[in-house]
Amino acid sequence: MPGKILIIDDDPDVILFLSTLLQDQGYEPVDAQNGVEGLEKAKADRPDLILLDLMMPEKSGIALLQDLKKDEELKHIPIIMVTGVSGETGIDLETFFERNRPHGSEGDAPRPEAYLEKPVDPDRLLALIRDILE
């Protein structure tokens, strides 16, 4: 059963593309153009899944991830982080989160449920969403 998906990205092109793609697959896309708006929409719309862009003005994807995963009501919502970072800067997100996890407190570290590198491959995205939601 298709669900509600919140797309948080500062690039209107990305929002247009992803929402059209998800809509075509029967999902219900909701979008936000920055981190602040994204947090509000998450609270208000209670999406089944969040697609979160890492690089955004005002509030970065990392900061928003921390907020979402600390919120008792929202932390269960699965998050797929969409990023161009690793390709562009050579930073491996996996390693990034591993390093930031406090010792001996596994599970406490705010981590997204999945990563997806830009450019977004529609088939891979849909497969990932399906995996997480079912």
């Binding site: 092109d13 990305v14 247009l16 593309f17 059209t20 793609l21 809509q23 075509d24 161009g84 390709g87 562009e88 830009k118 450019p119 977004v120 529609p122």
Partner: peptide, 24 residues
């Protein structure tokens, strides 16, 4: 190298645009 990513981004935009048009 940097430009390649920039251009790749644009190409993605084009691809996305093409998808949206097709869908529409």
């Amino acid at each position: 190298a940097g430009l390649a990513h920039y251009i790749k981004n644009i190409l993605n935009g084009l691809k996305g645009g093409a998808y949206v048009i097709n869908s529409a």
